[in-house]
Nucleic acid binder design. Structure first.
Length: 420
DNA sequence: TCTGGGGTCCTAGGACCC
DNA sequence: TCTGGGGTCCTAGGACCC
């Protein structure tokens, strides 16, 4: 038996925690570059603000209704997420942190399930200040659905146990929910299903998994099994080792010259190195890509990538930067307005157990000490305390982030002040 | 003017081998 | 007219998730 605990409008809830005056008002949090709305308060949803809608399209609506927008403040959200999860950790024997704002709890053997759900809600809102909903089901997929129902039906007060109901009542709920709400059914698949007359969750549950497997593949067949109460997905308490690491950003303004592309690329490559060392992995290959803005289709378009294999697997940022720059030099073509570059570390393996070639040595001790020192300084003194010269000092390509709130919980200087 | 940034898994099809 | 068959490995691309 699983409980899925999901924070309500998580990023917006984080912002409101420090701006209680925004309660009851339409609020959105924007993606990088203040591009799209990625989190919306209920009031903003009610005004018709869609998930992922470009902010520039919302200007009019925002002015008319006084929508308040924030740039993303990931340091704040990550910190509050950690606090929510640590409360949850004390309330169930096993927990899988599934994303920044949701966790699965294994609640096998607990009889007072709904009561536990209510306790979770109360404790998280009291101790951290973030509202959550709890969905309970026999499988992860059913718990997800139960959570969806808890969110959409205010009379349930945020907790819904699908398994506590008799079959006919379950069927009534599932018959009213569109098939696209099922975890693992996206836009494309739901359109294909609807064309076959499978419209509601109940419809999908009633289909033969074998037929689904033939027409849609094993993934959706598993989803149907899960809907029927046959658990195919287990708890993953320890997150599996990453298979790839990507760092990329869109620019605040388009960039034309190779030199200007190189600076952000070096930054991303260095950040990828930090993530790689946090994972305790080494990389065998570096992929670089660059592209123009596909939305500006009146300008010439270009998109290219290069995979640069490394003779010696490494976790040294300098080697990653070198490979990335070599790839960029190779793929760069003049005459385009570039909007984005990125670095991907592919083909990762655990550090220290590598089969290297007889004559090639892995990172030597000096390299490891240098990287550890850099990471340590940046951890203690703040990101960017030390960096590579190639990252540049005047960063014209920096992303836009004009509406960002303070680092209320992670920087002494920006602590919230309470007035007596 | 202005359209996010990560990830995972699965499948199809080509290259290559015997 | 007729042009093997089966296996593996790799890559690209699609679909999904948050």
């Amino acid at each position: 038996m699983y409980a899925l605990v999901d924070c309500n409008n998580f990023y917006v809830s984080c912002e409101r925690l420090f701006r209680p005056d925004l309660k009851g008002r339409p609020v959105v949090v924007l993606s990088n570059n203040d591009g799209c709305a990625v989190s919306r308060s209920q009031e903003a949803k009610d005004l018709g603000v869609a998930m992922g809608q470009p902010w520039f399209q919302l200007q009019e609506l925002a002015k008319r209704h006084g929508i308040v927008a924030f740039s993303s403040n990931y340091a704040l959200y990550a910190d509050l997420s950690e606090r929510v999860m640590s409360v949850l950790r004390d309330m169930a024997p096993r927990i899988e942190v599934y994303s920044i704002d949701e966790s699965f709890l294994d609640i096998a053997g607990i009889t007072e399930r709904e009561q536990l759900g209510r306790q979770i809600r109360e404790r998280v809102v009291r101790w951290v200040g973030i509202p959550v909903c709890v969905g309970i089901g026999a499988t992860k997929t059913r718990a997800k659905l139960a959570n969806h129902i808890a969110k959409k039906n205010l009379e349930l007060a945020g907790v819904f146990d699908l398994e506590a109901l008799p079959i006919e009542e379950q069927a009534a709920w599932l018959g009213r929910i569109g098939v696209g709400e099922v975890w693992g059914v996206g836009r494309k698949i739901s359109r294909r299903l609807e064309a076959l007359g499978v419209r509601s969750v109940a419809d999908l549950q009633a289909t033969n998994p074998e037929t689904i497997r033939q027409q849609f593949g094993v993934t959706l067949a598993r989803t149907v099994e899960e809907l029927r109460g046959v658990a195919c997905l287990d708890m993953e308490e320890v997150s599996p080792r990453k298979k790839q690491i990507m760092v990329s950003r869109s620019f605040g303004q388009p960039v034309r010259l190779l030199d200007e592309l190189r600076q952000p690329l070096v930054s991303y490559a260095a950040n990828a190195g930090v993530k790689l060392r946090e994972e305790g992995s080494v990389t065998h290959a570096v992929m670089v890509f660059a592209r123009t803005n596909p939305f500006r289709d009146k300008y010439p378009q270009y998109s290219a990538s290069r995979l640069v294999p490394l003779v010696v697997p490494t976790q040294d940022s300098r080697a990653i930067i070198e490979a990335a720059v070599a790839g960029l030099n190779d793929l760069y073509r003049p005459g385009y307005l570039y909007q984005k570059v990125g670095v991907m570390l592919c083909d990762l393996s655990p550090a220290g157990v590598d089969q290297t070639d007889l004559f090639a040595k892995g990172d030597d001790e000096r390299s490891q000490r240098l990287m550890a020192t850099m990471d340590g300084l940046n951890r203690r003194m703040g990101r960017g305390a030390v960096f590579f010269a190639g990252q540049g000092i005047q960063r014209r390509w920096m992303v836009r982030s004009n509406l960002k709130s303070g680092a209320y919980t992670t920087k002494w200087a920006q602590l919230q002040v309470a007035h007596a």
